[in-house]
Computed example of a mutant assay.
Amino acid sequence: MTIRNNWTREEIAAIYNKPVLDLMYEAATVHRQYHQAGEVQVCTLLSVKTGGCPEDCAYCPQAARYNTGVTAHKLMEVGEVLQKAVEAREAGSTRFCMGAAWREVRDNRDFDKVIEMVKGVNTLGLEVCCTLGMLSPEQAQKLKDAGLYAYNHNLDTSENFYDDIITTRTYQDRLDTLENVRKANISVCSGGIIGMGEGEEDRIGMLHTLATLPQHPESVPVNALVPVEGTPLEDQPKVSVWEMVRMIATARIIMPHAMVRLSAGRVRMNLEEQALCFMAGANSIFAGDKLLTTPNPGYIKDQEMFQMLQLRPRQAYKEQLV
Rank of each mutant, 00 (worst) to 15 (best):
R103D: 14
Q307T: 08
G205I: 05
Q36L: 09
V128E: 00
Q36D: 12
R266A: 11
T212Q: 04
L311M: 12
K318M: 14
D289A: 15
M24Y: 06
D173G: 12
N154E: 04
S190R: 04
M247S: 14
I204V: 14
P137E: 05
V241D: 00
R266T: 11
E55R: 05
E77D: 10
T167N: 11
V188K: 01
H73S: 13
A101E: 13
N160H: 08
L309Y: 08
T250G: 00
A101K: 04
E198D: 07
V222G: 01
G191P: 04
Y66W: 07
S187C: 14
E243N: 12
G147W: 14
R261P: 06
M117T: 04
M259R: 13
A27S: 13
R252K: 14
V128A: 02
G69P: 06
P256T: 11
I204Q: 12
P54C: 09
E138W: 00
A100Q: 06
Y171P: 11
E116S: 12
V220H: 01
E80M: 09
V222E: 02
E116A: 14
P137S: 03
I165T: 02
L207S: 02
G125Q: 02
L213D: 04
D202N: 09
A140P: 01
V42Q: 00
D235G: 06
K119N: 05
I12H: 04
I193S: 02
M117P: 00
L175Q: 09
I248H: 06
A211M: 00
E10P: 11
I194R: 06
G199Q: 13
Y162P: 12
V128T: 08
A275I: 00
G205T: 04
A100D: 08
Q215E: 07
R203L: 05
L178W: 10
A184G: 10
E229Y: 07
Q172T: 15
I254W: 03
P295N: 12
Y149P: 00
P256W: 05
K74D: 14
K238S: 09
A101W: 10
Y16F: 15
A282G: 07
I166G: 05
E104I: 11
C60I: 08
L21H: 08
T44W: 11
D235L: 13
G38L: 08
R4P: 04
L213E: 03
G195Y: 07
G79H: 09
A146H: 09
R4D: 02
N185F: 12
N6K: 11
D107N: 15
L225I: 09
A13Y: 15
L225S: 03
A140F: 05
M244Y: 10
S284Y: 01
L210F: 01
Q310R: 13
V118T: 10
V220L: 02
A275L: 07
M76E: 11
W102V: 04
M259G: 13
K142E: 15
P295K: 10
E127A: 07
I194C: 01
V322K: 14
R266P: 07
L271C: 08
V220F: 03
I248R: 03
M308I: 13
L233T: 01
S93Y: 06
C53Y: 06
A280K: 03
Y66D: 03
P295W: 02
L143C: 11
P61Y: 08
L75A: 07
A224I: 05
D156K: 08
V181I: 15
L225D: 00
A85I: 05
